[in-house]
């Protein structure tokens, strides 16, 4: 069969299509675009960061006095205890919120159609989404750290350990971005994505060791809280930062929190990313 062969687009201007290099570059272009979008509405960015700050202040000055941390230290010790919890919770809310709403928005506004009609790798749009979330997470963590220092939180084991702790938070954030991407594609409207997030993010972050010790919980909830990826990450951060941990159980995740946190994050990222890429290539089909 003879077919009409169309001229390829102006070849000298075009990088070889396909291949890892093109795919990386596509991801970079989309990351740039998403970061630019974020910066274009600075008030949304600022308000988004102000919310966890307000919570930290409320907890630090209202609740901290009523909680006691074994080993003494009073409200100061509780503030150090709660901060890793806030770090993890904020990272979870920011990434999952961002990626699900961003993705749903792109579908609703036809941007996904635009991108899918271009010769770019299937994963580039999604990778660019998750990568932009990392940028935003770094910003958010900086703001939260400043806020934490103001209320009396400190690191006690040196910068190296602290950096390890923050890296675990970023990896967790990356994994949860993919959950958000998946949700955004499933619900298709940013409004639904926004309210849908509360359904899983609140239980996920509160049914953990973020603000209370799981040992006070009934057996089933306690098991869930101890195996919660958020708990492992928080516990690991407390260890790395040298903050009090209230650890009274000797379950595996609480004994090896960094390992468990990493395994959770990698597992979630791999599974959700695979599902998301598959769903992306058939979205709207």
């Amino acid at each position: 069969m003879t077919v009409a062969v169309a001229p390829e687009p102006t070849a000298q201007d075009v990088l070889a299509a396909g291949g890892t290099l093109k795919s990386l570059r596509d991801t970079w272009v989309i990351t740039k675009r998403n970061t630019l979008r974020m910066m274009r509405i600075p008030e949304a960015l600022l308000l988004g960061m102000a919310q966890p700050v307000v919570f930290v202040l409320l907890f630090a000055y209202i609740f901290a006095g009523t909680f006691t941390v074994p080993g003494g230290g009073g409200s100061m010790a509780y503030r150090e205890y709660m901060m890793p919890g806030f770090f993890a919770q904020t990272v979870a809310f920011v990434t999952a919120g961002n990626s699900s709403i961003g993705m749903a928005n792109d579908i609703q506004r036809g941007m996904v159609d635009r991108f899918r009609s271009l010769p770019i790798s299937r994963a580039a749009l999604l990778n660019g989404r998750a990568a932009a979330d990392i940028v935003q997470n770094c910003l958010v963590i900086v703001v939260m750290v400043i806020c934490a220092v103001v209320v009396g939180w400190r690191i006690h084991r040196g910068l190296g350990h602290a950096i390890l702790g923050f890296l675990l938070l970023l990896v967790l954030g990356y994994a949860l971005s993919w959950v958000g991407v998946l949700i955004g594609m499933a619900v298709r409207t940013p409004e639904a994505a926004g309210s849908g997030n509360f359904l899983w993010l609140f239980p996920l972050t509160f049914l953990s060791n973020a603000f209370v010790t799981p040992s006070t919980l009934p057996a089933v909830l306690r098991f869930a809280a101890e195996w919660n990826p958020i708990s492992a990450t928080i516990q690991a951060c407390r260890n790395q930062f040298g903050n009090p941990s209230l650890m009274q159980t000797h379950t595996f995740p609480m004994l090896h929190p960094a390992l468990v946190s990493l395994l959770w994050s990698v597992g979630i990222a791999v599974i959700c990313r695979t599902l998301a890429v598959r769903k992306y290539s058939s979205v709207g089909a």
């Binding site: 675009r33 506004r109 036809g110 159609d113 635009r114 580039a124």
Partner: peptide
Amino acid sequence: RAIGLSGQFAAVDDRLTGRENLRMVGELYG
């Protein structure tokens, strides 16, 4: 690689400028 699509709902990024939109598409074409 051979087609251009202009959809029913103008799919341009509302938060980017006209120039940024076109450059992005160009870069995505490689």
